[in-house]
């Protein structure tokens, strides 16, 4: 006799919880998502060069050479992941650009397979979050274009348009910087 009552109670609770989820403010924001074209840029300020810094940059160059030397997507991905896992020496401003390049290339490599698009998005989206400042460099523009391409593949129009718009703004700032 109590089971039906508890079933009704449970159903009501489930409906309430579901309603809470549907009314989630963040969910509402994303449901009506408009492209987020915010961009914050900072100039790369190289610090004093060190041997550790040079070793890191040379190690990244070797990782790219290793990825260039194979057509196997898995081997390329493994090499690029090792590059991203390299410990960054303190104060090496160039590392930000190098890591963006590594992540962008890894994203492009992952996206060569349909099932890798989501993984690539998970990799690049946090690195290129609109809340984060990006280095004023070609690497930022390229990474944003790649993120836009991934978003198109994933069917996320808002993220795609926002990323492309941000890339164009980075390139515009970069052009102004070069023309000085």
């Amino acid at each position: 006799m109590r089971s039906p009552r508890n079933f009704v109670l449970g159903t009501v609770m489930a409906a309430m919880l579901a309603s809470l989820g549907a009314c989630d403010p963040e969910g509402d924001r994303e449901l009506g998502a408009s492209p987020d074209a915010r961009i914050s840029i900072h100039a790369v300020q190289p610090g004093a060069p060190t041997r550790e810094g040079l070793a890191y940059i040379e190690a990244v160059a070797r990782v790219h050479a290793e990825a260039d030397g194979t057509t196997d997507v898995d081997a390329q991905g493994a090499a690029l992941r090792r590059g991203l896992a390299l410990p960054v020496p303190a104060g090496l401003a160039e590392a930000e650009v190098l890591r963006l390049e590594l992540a962008t290339r890894l994203g492009e490599t992952l996206a060569s397979r349909p099932e890798g698009v989501a993984v690539a998005l998970d990799l690049l989206e946090p690195m290129l979050d609109p809340e984060r400042s990006l280095p004023l460099d070609r690497a930022s523009a390229r990474a944003l274009v790649t993120l836009g391409d991934l978003a198109v593949e994933a069917g996320d129009d808002a993220l795609a348009v926002g990323s492309y718009s941000r890339a164009i703004r980075v390139m515009s700032s970069l052009r102004k910087e070069l023309e000085r």
């Binding site: 990825a67 260039d68 070609r138 523009a141 944003l144 836009g148 890339a167």
Partner: peptide, 18 residues
Amino acid sequence: LGSQARAALEGVPGEQDG
């Protein structure tokens, strides 16, 4: 927009990757 962005990126000087 992606086509425009990629075309603009092609025009930005500089190397990439290795």
